[in-house]
Design a protein around this nucleic acid. Sequence first.
DNA 1: ACCTCGCATAAATTATTCTTTATATATTAT
DNA 2: ATAATATATAAAGAATAATTTATGCGAGGT
Lengths: 124, 124
Amino acid sequence: MNELATIFKALSDETRLRIIKLLEQGELCVCDITAALDMVQPKVSFHLSALREAGLIKDRKQGKWIHYSLNDQDLLRRMLILSICERLRDNQSLADSKRLSVFLGKKDLGRKVVPLKSKSRCCG
Amino acid sequence: MNELATIFKALSDETRLRIIKLLEQGELCVCDITAALDMVQPKVSFHLSALREAGLIKDRKQGKWIHYSLNDQDLLRRMLILSICERLRDNQSLADSKRLSVFLGKKDLGRKVVPLKSKSRCCG
DNA sequence: ACCTCGCATAAATTATTCTTTATATATTAT
DNA sequence: ATAATATATAAAGAATAATTTATGCGAGGT
């Protein structure tokens, strides 16, 4: 398929728009996104790969985790991502952010409980 | 579906991008687009309706014909349409334009042949 | 060495979209 | 009134995409 059509196809799904909106907050790993969207993990991986193949997000492997972030290299993608983040201010996005905060909070809490053992932990 | 997702979905198909590129040249009726794309008419109508429902094109009825044109009312749509037209400069788009010219030329020729009978003719 | 965790991928199912063929509607010409 | 033309729409079939469930693989932890 045409590169342009591939980009638009990647953006033609609500779940993927929600993911982009979440990534506005910065780098997230798959389990973060899975918790925020309240979905099963393979489903999230499926949508992440569509976004990655369209060049809209990039990944960075670190230990057991893969951190995803927005890939606004060229002007078109940057523009698209900005438009999406600006327009996606609905209740669902709020709920997603809320679930993300709760999940990240739990991770932090876990870290404080066993800080000296230096457990391998996402975003540690 | 989300309005944003609907817009992107409408743009996620190559045929529809070709239609947008064609409409850059101005208002066209369905038979013009059908000739330019060299496709069957119901297929073109199908794709036109996807673009119309996404608010990317508008129509104007005149006699037997329905003229379609780009609908760049808001900033997002204008931006998207511009990006598409700028990026779609491939051989296929050239061929589409060529076929359109040939078809429009034939229509003009027909008009010259029987001018006094004032036949109902598209773009007359 | 074995277990667990985070993630990807495969297979099967379900849902959606695209294409084709056929038909309907409206408008104009004869 | 009948025919022809431009377009839409419906129905059926083919092609894609999304979802679920199951499994595999690599990186740490014990």
